[in-house]
Amino acid sequence: MSGLRFVDVCSGAGGLALGLEQAGFEPVLLLDNKPVACETLSMNRPRWNVLEMDLLDFVPDEHPYTYDVDLLSAGLPRVKSSATAGRADTDEEEQLLKAAVLLAYSIQPRAMIIENVPGLVDAAAFEPLREFVRKELEHLGYRLHWFVLNAADFGVPQDRKQGVVVALKERHSDSFRPPVRTVDKHLSVGRALRDSMAARGWRGAQAWAARAVAVAPTLVGGSDNRGGADLGPTGTKAAWARMGVNGGALADVTPGPEADDHPGLIKLTDAQAALLQGFPAEWRFAGRKTARYRQIGHASPPPVGKALGAALVEALRG
Rank of each mutant, 00 (worst) to 15 (best):
A37M: 09
A37W: 04
E39R: 15
E39W: 03
T40C: 07
L41R: 08
L41Y: 07
N44D: 11
R45P: 00
R45W: 02
P46T: 09
R47L: 06
W48F: 09
W48H: 08
N49K: 14
N49P: 00
V50M: 10
V50W: 07
L51G: 03
L51T: 08
L51P: 02
D54I: 02
L55R: 03
L56A: 12
D57N: 11
F58I: 02
F58P: 00
V59N: 11
P60L: 09
P60G: 10
H63G: 06
P64M: 12
P64Q: 14
P64G: 12
Y65V: 12
Y67D: 09
D68S: 08
V69R: 02
D70F: 00
D70S: 07
L71M: 07
L72Y: 01
S73T: 14
S73D: 04
A74I: 00
G75N: 02
L76K: 01
P77S: 04
P77M: 03
P77K: 02
V79C: 07
K80E: 03
S81K: 03
S81N: 10
S81I: 00
S82P: 00
A83C: 00
T84C: 07
A85R: 15
A85E: 14
R87C: 05
R87W: 08
R87Y: 05
A88N: 05
D89W: 06
D89V: 15
D91A: 15
D91T: 04
E93R: 14
E94S: 03
E94R: 15
E94W: 11
Q95G: 13
Q95K: 13
Q95C: 06
Q95D: 14
L97E: 00
K98D: 00
K98A: 08
A99M: 05
A100G: 15
V101C: 13
L102A: 11
L103N: 02
Y105H: 14
I107E: 00
Q108E: 12
Q108M: 08
P109E: 06
P109F: 06
P109N: 07
R110Y: 01
R110K: 15
A111Y: 04
A111I: 05
A111T: 09
M112S: 04
I113F: 08
I114K: 01
I114M: 13
I114Q: 00
E115M: 13
N116I: 05
N116L: 06
N116E: 07
V117E: 04
V117M: 04
V117C: 05
P118G: 12
G119Y: 11
G119I: 08
G119M: 09
L120K: 06
L120T: 04
V121P: 05
D122T: 09
A123N: 12
A124E: 12
A125V: 14
F126T: 01
F126Y: 15
P128S: 08
L129N: 10
R130V: 07
R130P: 08
E131A: 12
E131M: 06
F132A: 04
V133Y: 01
R134W: 04
L137C: 08
E138V: 11
H139N: 09
L140K: 06
L140C: 07
G141T: 10
R143M: 01
L144M: 12
H145W: 11
H145K: 08
H145N: 15
F147S: 14
